[in-house]
Design a protein around this nucleic acid. Structure first.
Lengths: 366, 366
DNA sequence: AATTGGTTCTGAACCGTTACGGTCAATCCA
DNA sequence: TGGATTGACCGTAACGGTTCAGAACCAATT
């Protein structure tokens, strides 16, 4: 071990330069601009670096100087691990990862605790830009992101004036789905929706709450239903809407139970997500209700499991959405880029929607 | 817009201090150590910051000075998006994310292209440490990570002397599974395994290749099988082993087909992952082979889909593994921490393993 | 009156790098 | 031959903060 030159502190570019008797610039160039020095000197630099255990320019110092971090920040207000549970979020994440990977950018998952209002993590993230996904319009973390002098792209959820955005036409898409149910004959329906605002409200939703939901996507989907059923002459004020804070199959089941208990005569359960719809299907099965003969159930998103069970739903290109968000962000330097991207959705007929049973059928069977 | 003080460059801590007529230290303290200045002055600082649009201390500059990035790097040699596809990787990721979240650390996904040897991304990542998952022992990215002066934890895959590690007893676990098959009476078996080294080799595996596999986990699992079947008097050199580069259900199916074509008399297909096993099941179904009556199939990992189809497999705690890796890394300052964590596995009996049919049964039915 | 202690704020060093605008000698060209 | 060009390298000034050892001030204590 006599070889070790008691390196108290690890070598830096400066110490390496000193050792070599060249300027720091030259060492820097050896790493970053090989054409700026002779091959021979460069070889010497790199060799000495190896000998001294110099790992190459410090990324943080470099970032400070170049004003580039080489990473994209991702903000989602749910617990980080939520993103790994929800198939739609996962698809988005995958698409975003693909875009980053393609551009050689890292993906920095910002750790935020949805319960606390600790915004520090947003300020601490060394990133060149942010993608914000699935947070309410009034989220303090979102505000923190926007306060930072880096480009930001919002996906779906928060609707912010003047900020680049990628999403779908939630309102129009669910309107089309609703019109289908209407043409099948459904008039007495119930709705299961996700969290509408930051506060927990597991239960029925007032018209006011629905209209002022801070989760933009949910608000838009409810509005789309209002559009369609309002036009069909259904008094929307009487349509039961049940909200769940947690987004899970179990939540969907319990919400369906709550709604069916309160109004056993609904002929269709419209869910604002496939996950909730899967829960509704489970609850229907539990009650011995056949789908779609006794009850129509619809979802939204088009996740793999929905496909598997033949759910009537709206498919949206989640992976493409993530990729688009990434590309949009990474193209921020280009002033001619689109400022907003709306992706297409597709109505999936599925097998969980059918005409409602008539009163006679209810009593005497089909 | 007369109010705007033509801010060419965004405000910095220094410009803010100048505006206020205080020192930079004081402004810094206003953000980081509120107890170091009078509440009144602090209020003024923060107010002026808001007015000037100063977003708070620059994270990169802060990182340079404090030598903390507040983020953990994750290296996996697969395409980044692979991690979002493979259930086992996903579980690991979720556990790791949980650990990071709990510690307020970001999770920085390092973008590496498995095809190219571009190590730059590793050098560019501003992180306090690395978790390395599922890369071969001789991966250049791994070497790059180790050259950086930050703590590193390896999960499962690369086996590196002197580096902290979390994993399972792959060899022992699969030995137990094999012994079960042996006691059921299986002697003529085939093996389906994942990528053994960085080069693509879709097909049969020589003994030499198996023994020198650079993917440590695969090597260990194959070795475990050798242990068990060797002890049972089976000539391992004659056991067909088929390798697949891509890890997917389709790969599993094609590997199973290749193996069954070459040796229709095997009574069991032992797969080194559940994903491959699911493919093997699909191929068996395609051929009209009943599982387990006509063919035994086993997996490894214990993913959700395996559970769903009742696969005989080994369950490993993937989420816990990710969490353990994170915790181990974040505890690097503690010299008394464990240097290696081995988690427990569990044999899942499942319903895809049964005694092999005898020759008579083969001809005359059960 | 001198000492002590506490609060509030400052000056200067430092973190490790890259951008910018040079210098200087060697080479090229007509 | 002399002016322009090129290649190789260097010095300085940031980049935007944090930190630590004091300075200045004031009130309380000895």
């Amino acid at each position: 071990m006599a070889r070790s030159t008691h390196v108290r502190r690890p070598a830096t570019l400066a110490s390496l330069a000193a050792e070599l008797g060249v300027s720091r610039t030259t060492v820097s160039n050896a790493y970053n601009r090989p054409d700026q020095l002779s091959p021979e000197l460069r070889r010497r630099v790199l060799e000495t670096a190896r000998r001294l255990g110099y790992p190459g320019p410090d990324p943080v110092a470099r970032s400070l100087r170049t004003r580039k971090a080489g990473a994209v920040g991702l903000l989602l207000t749910e617990n980080l691990s939520y993103a790994f549970r929800d198939p739609a979020a996962l698809g988005f994440l995958e698409g975003l990862a693909l875009a980053c990977e393609g551009a050689g950018q890292g993906l920095h998952l910002v750790p935020v605790n949805p319960e606390r209002e600790d915004v520090a993590a947003v300020h601490r993230a060394g990133v060149d830009g942010f993608v914000v996904y699935s947070v309410p319009d009034d989220d303090p973390h979102l505000a923190a992101v926007l306060s930072r002098p880096v480009p930001t792209v919002v996906a779906d959820q928060p609707h912010v004036e003047g900020v680049d955005r990628v999403g779908i036409d939630d309102r129009g898409a669910i309107t089309a789905l609703a019109q289908r149910l209407i043409s099948l004959g459904h008039r007495r329906v119930g709705v299961l929706c996700m969290r509408l605002a930051r506060d927990r409200n597991d239960g029925f939703v007032t018209t006011d709450r629905a209209e002022h939901a801070t989760f933009h996507v949910q608000r838009a989907r409810l509005a789309g239903l209002t559009d369609a059923f309002g036009a069909a002459g259904v008094d929307w004020g009487r349509v039961p809407v049940v909200e769940r804070f947690d987004h899970s199959v179990a939540s969907g089941a319990s919400a369906a139970a709550q709604l069916l208990d309160a109004d056993p005569h609904v002929t269709a359960l419209i869910c604002t997500s496939d996950i909730l719809a899967l829960g509704a299907l489970a609850e229907a099965r539990r009650r011995g209700l056949r789908v779609p003969q006794d009850l129509t159930v619809t979802g939204f998103d088009g996740i793999a499991d929905a496909d598997r069970v033949g759910l009537t739903t709206v498919r949206q290109p989640v992976l493409e959405k993530g990729r688009a968000a990434g590309k949009l962000l990474l193209a921020s330097v280009d002033p001619t880029r689109p400022r907003e991207i709306t992706l297409n959705t597709e109505l999936v007929p599925g097998a969980t929607a059918a005409p409602p049973r008539t009163a006679e059928e209810r009593w005497f069977g089909p």
